[in-house]
């Protein structure tokens, strides 16, 4: 039950993009079409879960016993960079098309604040190992869901005759704002 609450909380109530405003860069950057957004979601899910997991391990097996908590951010970034690099290698091997369409945004997952943010949050919330795993997973699902929804909306907007002044990123930002407003409706759901 607790896990379900964590999932609902991370997906809807504290959605990493629309409520915590983390990871907006890929959210705006690779949401041009649904398949790319799904790919980005999947890649980010992979990185998020893996980094939340290894962050917990590093924190509890290495940093805390040695009293090196001040190295937390530094070492997490190191881990995340490695995981992203690994993902990139893997994608390049398995799915050229996705690799190409994600382009620069794939290595940029490294600097995706959602990833570091989630890793740091799991430590701050003092989650257990399995809880932080679920938390990372929930955040990733929330991220992917919003990415796909937003990509759907943007695909539709591409066909709309948006006034030139607002077409492209501006209308995207307005839409993201409305989406964020909608997610306020889920406040205190859990």
């Amino acid at each position: 039950m607790e896990y379900i609450i964590i999932i609902i909380s991370t997906v809807l109530v504290n959605n990493v993009v629309l409520v915590q405003f983390l990871g907006l860069c890929p959210f705006m950057g690779v949401s041009n079409n649904i398949s790319t957004a799904t790919g980005m979601g999947a890649a980010t899910t992979f990185v998020l879960v893996l980094s939340a997991l290894s962050a917990w391990l590093i924190e509890h097996l290495l940093l805390k016993p040695l009293g090196l908590e001040f190295l937390r951010t530094l070492s997490f970034i190191l881990i995340i960079a490695a995981v992203v690099q690994f993902t990139e290698l893997y994608l390049q091997k398995t799915s050229q098309a996705l690799y190409k369409s994600l382009g620069i945004f794939l290595p940029l997952i490294t600097t995706n604040c959602a990833v570091l943010g989630v890793a740091l949050l799991t430590i701050r919330e003092e989650f257990t190992f399995s809880e932080s795993l679920i938390y990372g997973f929930g955040a990733a699902i929330g991220f992917s869901m919003v990415m796909v929804i937003f990509a759907g909306l943007r695909q539709r907007l591409e066909l709309a005759e948006v006034p030139e002044l607002f077409s492209g990123v501006p209308i995207g930002l307005i839409t993201a704002g409305v989406l964020s407003m909608i997610f306020m409706g889920f406040t205190s759901l859990v």
Binding site: L71, S75, L78
Partner: peptide, 17 residues
């Protein structure tokens, strides 16, 4: 610790590459 982490990760990535 950081050097060690860097080395290990680097080695793993090298393998992956």
């Amino acid at each position: 610790v950081l050097t060690l982490m860097g080395l290990i990760l680097g080695y793993l990535l090298g393998l992956a590459a």
